[in-house]
Design a protein around this nucleic acid. Structure first.
Lengths: 365, 365
DNA sequence: AGGAACGTTGACAGCGCTACCAGCAACGAC
DNA sequence: GTCGTTGCTGGTAGCGCTGTCAACGTTCCT
């Protein structure tokens, strides 16, 4: 009776084919492209597979077809809330598809990223999602030589490797500062941590806005390479306040820092927003709940992840998007921490959509 | 000249072997068990591999060896901070090993878990990390039949499938309540969300502690199946307070809820801890930074992840741990939000270590 | 009616690696 | 000196699947 089963007792494609009364290759096609089969054989194979509880062997498939059904994802941090939202989007969008996610953590190092990229590409992934637009020259070359679709996420920039989805951190920061100007603030501090490329571009946006208004002062900027935390936000703000007691607002490069600043204000009995206005970045869930509620720049992180994965899967399957670069925009969510006169509703938003926009404050260099 | 290269231009093991002047199988052994080679051949293969930039084809390896070098990880949520810490531990511990992590999200559904488990096991993972001790009977059967090491994480219970690492949520909750008793609180509310099995066991611990003290009152408990959030913490607390205005403390099933409660207190001008004491669970970073600082039960999440992965890898390689069940314990971090008289140092801790412990409050049923 | 075009199916030959077993030299025990 | 025994190396034969191409009807066009 030949070898009916492998020693491990697993059902092979050949068994399914035999039960269905077709050749193995026909059974194989059923799983990859059912439309190519006649209805009769399709149902036969389907019921045979179900009856035997067949599960394809992905290793054999990968070896024979010279490609895997793995989407590689490179992100800089697993701890950061921002990435957990993005990841959730990626996993949600890939669920139900044939593709599985292979995740790796670059720890904010582009050298580590290069190393992981080499590893990933050697396994011929079906597609790749990478964070940001700052890769080493070597990484860039590998990406360009890769024969799979690639999506860069988190921000947009001039030279996409392939597809790109994100928003302008520079513009978002400028919009936040403009909001503070609108509320009458002039001595606006900047608090930033980690200082990865995207935080750096937020700083650039802040600097540009301040310079445009003739209000730039280097001493208003406090940054550190240390990873971000709520506690750190409080500490950096304390430093800033000690040095520049006349500041009237703080723009924080992320919401954890903003929460830390809020707590530090409370600790020092500094009134928010009357003495110090606070603006954060990302609009994490707690911002709406804090007392006072905290203004932040909402970024569409979940959508970034899910859209990136969806675009990637489409591209893998040959349907390339009409526009390879997608700007998801951002929204300044104005809340109590930065509004000088309370609004009746308590919430105003200044949305910035990338499509139809002619706004001098956010778009000028 | 035979086929020197595959069409894709990739270096194969055979090329490395040829350059090194050994047989392919010897080259293969170099990558799996270098000690089995003579020093001369070892160095020859090593330099040949380096020179050609050889990267093994994992699909072929998996197919030939009938096993993969993949560690499957099943967690219920990607959003929850708790799991991002655990995950970081897992990824850190697996880095540098030959194993790669395959992550899937059960979304707190044991049916989804069962489905994913079936998928994972079909690919013969090298090992498996699963969350919690509540699996379907079907899942349980599959796990017991699986021929790979398995670690259950996040909590400990009576019947490990294989290895287990975590702590007693029940005991941790009791320790938190005991701390509140010590501080003179009697009408202690419970605020919980999502109500997954571990939160449920925290509730059980709370109930047991309250009953033991003769202080149990069903009306002190507010729970919901809704996913947790800071905002939700405030809302649940508002409900509780409306119904039971005489409460003097709240034990929150997690720190997000606790932060929400703190904000709600601030919103209502309820003094913390003088009118209401607050205790959270997990000791996320912001708890130490809040105003007042928030008491919480510290859980060793990163260690749980890293130790689980390390144990698993050891077990995969044949070195099974002496004790398959590891209790990582917890620590009640006492901070301002629950201390009736301020301590000079501002921080006291009541550590509970699983090893040498004879504490009636935490260990009685 | 002849032929092209299409849809459907199957035979064959690997994909790149490792399990298994055999072979060979060097060594020590009797 | 013979016989294991050990350490290292290589040959053979797949692992389970799919790419390629050829072959077979069937339909449709001219």
């Amino acid at each position: 009776m030949g070898r009916k089963r492998t020693k491990s007792g697993k059902i092979r494609l050949a068994e399914v084919a035999e039960l269905a009364g077709v050749s193995p290759i026909t059974a194989s096609r059923f799983f990859r492209n059912p439309e190519a089969l006649s209805v009769a054989k399709r149902t036969r194979v389907e019921s045979a597979a179900r009856e035997l509880g067949y599960v394809p062997n992905l290793a054999a498939r990968a070896l024979a077809s010279q490609r895997t059904e793995v989407i590689g994802v490179l992100i800089p941090s697993l701890t950061n809330n921002v990435f957990s939202d993005v990841l959730r989007g990626i996993y949600d969008a890939s669920e139900g598809s044939r593709y599985s996610i292979q995740l790796s953590n670059t720890r904010y190092s582009i050298l580590q990223e290069e190393k992981l990229l080499r590893l990933f590409l050697a396994q011929k992934p079906a597609g790749l999602i990478i964070t940001g637009i700052d890769q080493t020259a070597e990484s860039r070359a590998m990406l360009e030589a890769a024969d799979c679709p690639i999506v860069q996420i988190m921000e947009i920039g001039p030279n996409p490797v392939d597809m790109m989805i994100g928003f302008s951190h520079y513009d978002a920061a400028r919009a936040a500062i403009r909001h503070l100007f609108d509320q009458g603030h002039r001595r606006i501090g900047f608090v930033g941590a980690r200082m990865d490329p995207r935080v750096q571009r937020r700083l650039d946006g802040y600097v540009a806005a301040m310079k445009d208004a003739g209000l730039f002062d280097q001493r208003l900027i406090v940054t550190t390479a240390t990873p971000t935390s709520v506690t750190l936000g409080g500490a950096l703000f304390a430093d800033l306040l000690a040095r520049e007691p006349d500041i009237d607002a703080v723009f924080c490069a992320n919401d954890d820092l903003a929460l830390g600043v809020l707590f530090e204000c409370r600790r020092r009995d500094v009134a928010v927003p009357d003495q110090i206005a606070i603006v954060g970045f990302n609009d994490l869930e707690f911002m709406a709940s804090a007392v006072p509620t905290l203004t932040s720049v909402r970024t569409n992180r979940y959508e970034m992840g899910s859209t990136a994965a969806a675009m990637l899967i489409e591209a893998i399957e040959g349907k390339r998007p009409e526009r390879p670069v997608l700007d998801l925009g951002f929204t300044v969510i104005e809340r109590q921490s930065s509004l000088m006169q309370r609004q009746p509703g308590g919430l105003r938003t200044a949305e910035w959509s990338p499509a139809a926009q002619n706004d001098s404050v956010t778009n000028e260099p």
